[in-house]
Amino acid sequence: MPRTPAENDRIRRETMERILATSLRLFCEKGYYATSIEDIAKQAQISKGLLYHYFRSKEEVLSALVDRRIDDVLVVMKIPRS
Rank of each mutant, 00 (worst) to 15 (best):
A21I: 09
M16Y: 08
A21V: 11
K58Q: 07
T22K: 01
I19A: 03
V61N: 05
F55V: 05
R18G: 02
S23F: 01
R3C: 08
D9A: 12
V73W: 10
Y54C: 08
V75R: 13
K48L: 09
I37E: 05
A34G: 09
L74W: 07
K78E: 14
R12G: 02
Y54M: 08
E14W: 02
E60P: 04
L62E: 11
D71W: 10
Y54E: 09
S23M: 01
M16L: 12
I19S: 00
Q45W: 06
R69T: 13
E60H: 12
E59M: 10
E29D: 15
A44K: 00
E38P: 05
Y54W: 10
S47Q: 07
Y54D: 09
I11L: 12
R68K: 14
I79F: 09
V75S: 10
P80I: 06
Y32K: 05
S36D: 03
A21T: 13
Y32M: 02
G31V: 02
Q45V: 08
P80M: 05
P5A: 06
R81I: 10
I46W: 03
P5R: 04
Q45L: 07
F27T: 00
E14Q: 06
D71C: 09
R13E: 06
R13V: 04
K30I: 13
G31S: 02
D72H: 11
K48I: 07
M1G: 14
K30H: 15
V66S: 06
S57V: 04
R56C: 11
F27L: 02
R10D: 07
V73L: 13
E59Q: 14
R25E: 15
